[in-house]
């Protein structure tokens, strides 16, 4: 589904991704861990199409198409979704209005009819239950004055509404209380299917207890330096990153 090879990306003079390789198949969940500043959010942003980054070499193929060639909105319509580490406030636009526009733009791209108000509301009700989110939050300006946890939950709600093929969750667990963490994880798990894949960026094993990954990768200095089964996350939790750093520097 997603094939990243030798990806280099920089911002200004600073190279952040330095030859990153990653293969993801449909149906899989991949966890990406790694120390602060390693480039995890950068990878997520580059995949979503943030224009601040220059991709200097390498390729990203998504479902047989060159992802790097597409505008952010095209990537979304092709099925990429990024749950932001720091969701942005959109003054004056309610979540409901925002999602209705987004969903119908995506449908238009795919040649589908737009949903009318009734169909949209029905879908919304359904997904609201899934992530246990309140109507009153959805009528407010998107993310404006939302608590940290509300923002994260809203990201997952958006994901549920847009049903992406590849969801990238960038530290969606940070700032969530235990109950919210379980709800968010439940939401993600319910969307798991053989056609979809998920990348979970996290610092903590805690989330991976709920969203059990097929693979765990360690990103360090702009590269995936170690990959392993879910047990790798436990090992990292126990031992920290020093041994990985030492291994990586030795190469």
């Amino acid at each position: 589904m997603l094939s990243i090879s030798n990806l280099h990306a920089s911002i200004g003079e600073k190279e952040i991704l330095r030859g990153l390789n990653l293969e993801i198949n449909a149906g899989e969940v991949h966890a990406i861990m790694g120390p602060n500043g390693a480039g995890k959010s950068t990878l997520a942003s580059v995949l979503a199409g943030r224009e601040d980054y220059d991709v200097t070499s390498g390729s990203v193929v998504f479902d047989g198409k060159d992802l790097l060639d597409m505008a952010p909105e095209e990537r979304a319509a092709e099925g990429i979704f990024l749950a932001f580490q720091y969701p942005i406030e959109i003054p004056g636009v309610s979540t409901t209005n925002f999602l209705k526009t987004a969903l119908n733009e995506i449908r238009k791209y795919r040649g589908q009819d737009s949903l009318d108000a009734v169909q949209f509301l029905k879908l919304m009700k359904e997904k609201m239950k899934l992530v246990n989110i309140d109507q009153s939050l959805l009528s407010r300006s998107l993310n404006e004055g939302f608590s940290g946890g509300e923002k994260k939950r809203n990201e997952i709600f958006q994901m549920a509404m847009l049903e992406p093929k590849l969801a990238i969750l960038d530290e969606t667990d940070s700032g969530l209380d235990i109950d919210a963490l379980r709800i968010v994880a439940d939401g993600v798990n319910k969307l798991r299917s053989p056609e979809r894949a998920t990348i979970v960026v996290t610092h903590y094993q805690r989330l991976l207890d709920y969203i059990v990954p097929d693979y765990v990768h360690v990103l360090y200095k702009g590269r995936i330096v170690k990959s392993g089964p879910k047990e790798l996350a436990l090992e990292l939790e126990e031992k920290g990153y020093d041994w990985i750093k030492a291994e990586a520097e030795a190469i």
């Binding site: 199409g49 952010p72 909105e73 319509a77 925002f98 987004a102 733009e105 995506i106 958006q158 847009l162």
Partner: peptide
């Protein structure tokens, strides 16, 4: 960018 990343 946030809005575009949602398909708008």
């Amino acid at each position: 960018f946030y809005m575009r990343s949602r398909g708008i």
